[in-house]
């Protein structure tokens, strides 16, 4: 059986006054039904643009190319704009970091939820209302019936994010893409929302692509992880594998940066990654991390492929596993 979402060699280019910007440079991954893939990386690594490229929601001047981009058996590359618009919301849904900007302040919650179903499915207003109620309860909103007549500004940030999730679920999508869905929320609410996303994914058998910068979230929710740096996936594998034995120097650096109680002594200096992300404008060659890498060698000037081992753990680095683990 083919994967739910298959992405091969996804490239996004954006022409700028200063030259061509290459924010996404050949990203390949796939997501199965009921699976959670986390794309993790820092700002500017291309993770959000990758998500927008999947949804065909890129800014107009951006150019998207890919060798393959399919949602089950639908070819997203060949789809016309109106077909894509039909797919969005019905078979693939996206939730954003700031729910307020994605909800229309002029309509009630109920109206926006129902509209979602009425637009994509043959359903009556009453059926849509029933489904909206069902889903609001599902996402843990109490007194759901009274919420239907409320406006977005009357809800707290956590509730709005729940409404966004309910809205994304209205048509029972096969794939849900969540771009930093909890970054704007408090830790207690964050835990609740993530718990909910995990439950819903299992219950509805959705594929979930979660984009985040937070390794804590990745560790707790991901089945598989893709670490992005400068527009490329530099490490890819099962969450357990990647956290047990991070292999790419960038992944290792990133993990050393976060204070983990019990692992790093209180008040002792944290690890850091010196230097800055390279400019993604113009032509590039070689390993994009080499300018910040302590293991840099001459071979790093050449293009480096993402090499997968028998366990499915892939790294874009010339170092062997033993070399990396021995060094740190």
């Amino acid at each position: 059986m083919s994967a739910l979402l298959e992405v091969r060699d996804l490239v996004v280019d954006i022409p700028l006054a200063a030259g061509m910007l290459h924010p996404v440079r050949g990203v390949t991954f796939s997501v199965e039904r009921g699976e959670t893939l986390c794309i993790v990386g820092e700002s500017g690594c291309g993770k959000s643009l990758t998500a927008l490229a999947l949804m065909a929601l890129l800014p107009r001047r951006a150019k998207r190319t890919a060798a393959k981009l399919t949602l089950s058996d639908t070819d997203l590359l060949a789809a016309r704009d109106d077909e894509l618009a039909d797919l969005r919301g019905s078979r693939m849904a996206m939730i954003f970091q700031e729910p307020m900007t994605s909800l229309n302040p002029a309509y009630t919650i109920g109206n926006q939820l129902e509209e979602m179903l009425l637009r994509h499915r043959r359903a009556t207003r009453a059926e849509a209302r029933e489904r909206a109620l069902f889903l609001l309860e599902k996402v843990g909103i109490t007194a759901a019936a009274s919420r239907l007549s409320q406006y977005p500004h009357q809800l707290s940030g956590g509730l709005r994010q729940r409404v966004m999730i309910a809205m994304a679920l209205m048509c029972g999508p096969d794939l849900m893409i969540a771009d930093e869905p909890t970054t704007a929320l408090d830790v207690t609410i964050q835990a609740q929302i993530l718990l909910l996303l995990g439950q819903l994914r299992r219950e509805f058998g959705m594929g979930l692509v979660l984009i985040t910068h937070d390794l804590g979230i990745v560790a707790r929710i991901a089945d598989r992880v893709a670490v992005m740096y400068a527009g490329q996936i530099v490490e890819h594998g099962s969450a357990a594998e990647v956290f047990r034995e991070p292999r790419h120097p960038y992944t290792r650096g990133l993990m050393a940066c976060i204070p983990v109680p019990g692992k790093v002594a209180r008040g002792s200096p944290l690890g850091s990654i010196p230097g800055m992300v390279p400019s993604l404008i113009g032509s590039m060659s070689g390993c994009s991390f080499r300018s910040r890498c302590e293991f840099r060698r001459d071979q790093c000037e050449a293009e480096i492929a993402l090499v997968e081992d028998a366990t499915g753990h892939a790294t874009r680095c010339i170092l062997s596993v033993d070399e990396v683990t021995a060094a740190t």
Partner: peptide
């Protein structure tokens, strides 16, 4: 608090 420890869940 979500520490980066896989397997602990949410």
């Amino acid at each position: 608090v979500l520490t980066p420890e896989p397997g602990l869940g949410i």
